[in-house]
Nucleic acid binder design. Structure first.
Length: 212
DNA sequence: AGCTCGATTCCCT
DNA sequence: GGGAATCGAGCTA
């Protein structure tokens, strides 16, 4: 399969736990007004629908998470911590609300554009190391929520076959920053040894205001 | 109407 | 390793 073959919607029809590791090594093309930025995915997390306590879908459909409950092959973009965005790719049947969080990758095209967006990055490997950094580097915000990933060249997003990661290089572990019962599942997937993979952090409960 | 805290990053010690 | 920044979804009332 040639490197630059577009991935079609049936790729996303499968269960999210199957799609997530299969995304590693694939190329996400983000077409901006300034030109294309391409990202080789190195780290993702699966969020497994309404029964997954770690998922935004856990409490059912809301205005924010509506895209997750929509058709596969679309983006779910959400705003977090008052200043960042994160990007997911929706998987599985409509209403199953499966989504893969794109956590990190290697910028392979348009690194000048990404640098401009991420001036604090000191190394190429830091441009998209972490979900909010990835979204910033690729100029992704809430206006792209619900975008079709499989609409073809020139759309805001496209996914290319790339070079899927070898199975023996894929590692799994608990999801970063997920609390409670959602933390037990090893649904984080990354390419072992890749310098763009973000460091694992366990969930840290935020301290309450000190009561004097 | 008010409150808590999050699928984080950055900067400081 | 810890705290600040910053806003809004979702819960409690």
């Amino acid at each position: 399969m040639p490197h630059r073959t577009p991935i079609t919607r049936d790729f996303f029809d499968r269960p999210v736990l199957e799609v997530a590791p299969d995304l590693l090594g694939r190329t996400l093309v983000r077409t901006t007004s300034d030109g294309p930025i391409e990202l080789r995915l190195t780290e993702v997390e699966a969020y497994n629908g309404p029964t997954d306590p770690g998922s935004h879908a856990y409490r059912g459909r809301t205005r924010r998470n509506a895209a997750m409950f929509g058709p596969p092959g679309h983006a779910y973009v959400y705003f977090i911590y008052g200043m960042w965005f994160s990007v997911n790719l929706v998987c599985g049947p409509v209403d199953s609300a499966g989504a893969v969080l794109l956590r990190a990758g290697e910028i392979t095209t348009g690194s000048e554009l990404a640098q401009k967006r991420r001036p604090t990055a000191r190394k190429e490997s830091e441009l998209a190391k972490g979900p909010a950094r990835l979204a910033t580097a690729l100029d992704i915000d809430r206006t792209l929520d619900g975008s079709d990933i499989c609409a073809g060249p020139g759309a805001p997003f496209e996914l290319l076959a790339g070079e899927p990661a070898r199975a023996d290089r894929i590692r799994t572990g608990p999801r970063t920053g997920v609390s409670g019962d959602g933390a037990v599942h090893p649904w984080r997937f990354w390419i072992e040894g890749d310098p763009t993979v973000s460091p694992y952090r366990a969930h840290t409960p935020r301290r309450r205001q000190p009561s004097i």
